[in-house]
Design a protein around this nucleic acid. Structure first.
Lengths: 346, 346
DNA sequence: TTGTAGGCGTTATCAG
DNA sequence: CTGATAACGCCTACAA
């Protein structure tokens, strides 16, 4: 077959088929208003001519771009190993492809002007819907979409920070309780956590749940906040272990911080898990491949990505959607956790 | 400020400013043909009205979408930790944002119909340019874009498989030589490699360079091909170590396979690096955080991503671009490599 | 310097 | 069942 010369339009097809352009449009879109015979002819001609709808013209006419937007923040250090982002992209893409939608991805440096991207999307019609992640407390994006009310949105966050926008929530408080209770059962009375950035809503949810649950269990709880980067994770661990009375277990808000910290523990002479238990919040292949295997709080980000898309599509379709919840967290016990060490003299 | 009611168009601005729509267009695009006074007025009105150009209309009118396309393949297992992909996305996004371009990302399952995505892009005008990665030998995409000649493209691959399309190449052969020579100097005479999928052009380049260089150095060289997944990486390692006469050094085509294999080596009783040296092709934070630290062949994928975008933009701009080369590989020696073990009795 | 008119490719309306 | 015709919002000759 010959390469299609240039762009072939619906008018070309109409001309070649000897019908009007509207007949072609009907035929091509499987709509009534055209005879079977004409339809077949048009389809055949369109095929041989290699016609494809022009996306811009379609978008202009329908006021729909068949794309959804995702704007992420880029932290040069932390991103290199961020399995979360990639899993989300995969999950979303899987559902988007099924529905003939594309993903408009924008990644900007941390601290960049993300809000203007959303303003653009809100006004220029280049996306039919938007997913918001890493929602901060008092997040401007929430306010923006809330006041506009014209753009399908799903926020992946705790409902307490999404101001009534459709939300997909992971049970962070439940996860925190799961971890605290597990460590409590192992006899730990002093635990610590290296958390994600304090400004994020999910970090806050976890913070609060940890405090509540440890206090209910009468455990001592220390918490340091980092940016998910291996470096800061390791730093925080070093600080925690330098205490006169260091914790006997540390929970990390990301697998990368946990893994980077294993080396620190080893260097400081803390045997894992005998003297120090370590747990990663969010599981990945790394947790199972590292030695000792890292006990982790598991959830499927891919599944969350798959879940968020239909919520968007339903809105685009004019339906109202409420909040949904991700699969619950699940504790995967490996080799990095053990009963609390018995202090000499106790 | 009040939330902009609905979409505000150029005509609305014209009406509000009391001028014609073309005057508005000129003013907004900074083109001559309008007085300073009018321009200022228009700009002011547009701003207060919250006008933003409609992307579809603009695209239709200019035949330009200000988006570039990237279609990737999704392997549920391998993707979870693929730092390569994310680094590429970051690098590309960084440059794209600077130039006011978006990234159209499509991820499909391995074995899916990627070609039809490209046919779509070629015909529907939804992207102004395309980046092709993981080029296979005899890749249909190359043929497609070569015969169409209408779409700006950059292939990230070896020029030998890109059929004359503009190409960004990493010096895979050079990297291979670097590794072989390094291991040779350490006294290794029998090395192995767990490579990526055989169908990829870059795998082939490495394969050939390894064979040539090891043969020149009079070294024995074994090679197994895997899919970059930790599982297959570990499997291959197990097989290699089960030989009666196992290699004393193994090179992995991805950091994830290398890391997953460290556990296998330990289980089989191979001390790293004393009895077995391990090297990862492509460096990441994981390599330095793991114990022992993994010696790695380093390159900046982020930089490559940054490099590929201008190549595309220049083409979009009508310029002709040739092949370019990524920064050379650099060997980062850590703790997983050592002189070849001396055999008992030698 | 300004405004009018036509085109970009589709979809949708409304006569025939 | 068909085929003009008018949007969609922007750009750009071309006239005034």
């Amino acid at each position: 077959m010959a390469a299609p010369k240039t762009k072939v339009t619906i008018t070309d097809v109409a001309k070649a088929a000897g019908v009007s352009s509207s007949a072609v449009s009907y035929a091509l879109n499987g709509k009534p208003g055209v005879s079977e015979k004409t339809r077949d002819k048009v389809l055949k001609v369109a095929d041989t001519l290699g016609w494809r709808p022009n996306s811009a013209a379609k978008a202009l006419s329908n006021a729909s771009s068949r794309a959804i937007g995702l704007a992420l923040t880029y932290s040069p250090e932390a991103l290199t190993v961020d399995s979360w982002t990639l899993a989300l992209l995969s999950g979303m893409s899987f559902e988007l492809e099924k529905n003939d939608y594309s993903l408009m991805l924008r990644i900007i440096p941390t601290g960049g002007d993300m809000l203007s991207i959303h303003r653009e999307w809100l006004a220029d019609g280049s996306v039919d819907g938007v997913v918001i992640t890493n929602v901060e407390i008092g997040d401007k994006r929430i306010e923006l979409y809330r006041s506009a009310r014209s753009m399908p949105v799903v926020a992946m966050a705790d409902p307490s920070v999404t101001g009534g926008l459709p939300t997909l929530t992971s049970d962070d408080a439940g996860g925190a309780r799961l971890l605290v209770d597990y460590l409590h059962e192992l006899g730990h009375t002093h635990i610590a956590r290296v958390a994600g950035p304090e400004r994020y809503g999910h970090t806050f949810s976890r913070d609060r749940a940890f405090i509540e649950e440890t206090s209910a269990m009468d455990m001592r709880y220390d918490c340091l906040h980092a940016d998910y980067s291996p470096e800061q994770g390791a730093d925080c661990t070093a600080r925690l272990l330098a205490f006169g009375d260091p914790p006997t277990a540390i929970v990390y808000d990301s697998d990368s911080m946990a893994i980077a910290s294993m080396k620190v523990a080893a260097e400081r002479g803390f045997a894992v898990p005998e003297q120090l238990s370590m747990i990663a919040w969010d599981d990945s292949f790394l947790c199972q491949t590292v030695t000792p295997g890292l006990t982790a709080l598991h959830r499927s980000i891919v599944t969350a990505g798959k879940q968020v898309v239909p919520m968007l599509l339903r809105q685009i379709n004019g339906e109202t959607v409420g909040n949904e919840y991700e699969e619950p967290y699940e504790l995967v016990v490996r080799d990095s956790t053990a009963p609390a060490p018995v202090h000499a003299g106790q």
